[in-house]
Amino acid sequence: MDLLKVNQVSKTFKSGHFFFSKGRVVEAVKDLSVKIEEGVCLGLVGESGCGKSTLGRIILGLEPPQSGQVIFQGKDFYKISRQEQKKLRKDLQAVFQDYNSAINPRYPVKMAIGEPLRNYFRLSLLEEKKRIQELLELVGLNPDDMNKYSFQFSGGQLQRVNIARALALNPKLIVLDEAVSSLDVSVQAQILNLLADLKKELNLSYLFISHDIEAVYYLSDAIAVMYLGQIVEFIEGMSIFDQLTHPYSKKLLSSVLGPHPHFRTDLSAEFDELQIKSDTANGCNYIDRCNIKDQVCFKVKPALTSVSEDHLVACHKMKKISGIQMAI
């Protein structure tokens, strides 16, 4: 059974005077459907501003969508009562990018880790202490660190504390919103390894939101590429990265810098950034930046269709290619 099912959710934000127009509507997430099974890590990649974090917040129950459903463990999260929501939240945790601001600097970290425990269980002080020490050990910290304050930790250690807090209630799904992006390479490797181990050990599911494809590839079992509020490509159980075929996915892949000076990437590409398309009614969202566009792309919005098993792409050109392949 799917642990989490997101059905056609949309979320728009309105802003007043902005840029050159008087008031405008940003469609952060648009008719998006995705599901996460138990024990699986779904990687969500995309540029900043494409709606990755908004989707994460919708799934966490922090941002009610305008339409659509978020079904977590068989219950529609935004339809049930607050008490039931609270019950569901126990299985739903988050780790954010800014590890520093996620922990109150005025209390020792045992308060931060113990807070979810105090919210849900009536533990004695001794039991609580024991559980906190257990959690700290689980994430590779010294149990005696529980009395330290956040400023006494380094970035990587503090992110471990955040992970310990997320694990406190034995959750089923953890949303990792750019959880390793602001860490150093060597520390990033430590945290990625820790997350991979915990996933195996505790049978956790992750929604791993990041703009770093290399990190996503390392941790994820499935990858969803997001562009302007929609998923443009979804691939599961991939073994080779070359299988990503959407022109936008390819662009993201080509932006990954070669790890060796011998293979220098051609850096001469022209500038182009995420642009909000003026006319969203018709045509493909990616049309302004696409280099293989066609007449069809201006008229019809491509739907997410399967190209092969466990591989969905939203692009007219891809369908054609696969069609030819099928004909042969």
């Binding site: 390479v185 490797a189 990625l192 390894n193 290399e214 390392y218 990265f241 790890p259």
Partner: peptide
């Protein structure tokens, strides 16, 4: 320690 499009454990 840099992840390089691979699945084997990173050497942190």
């Amino acid at each position: 320690s840099k992840p390089q499009m691979q699945k084997k454990p990173l050497q942190a």
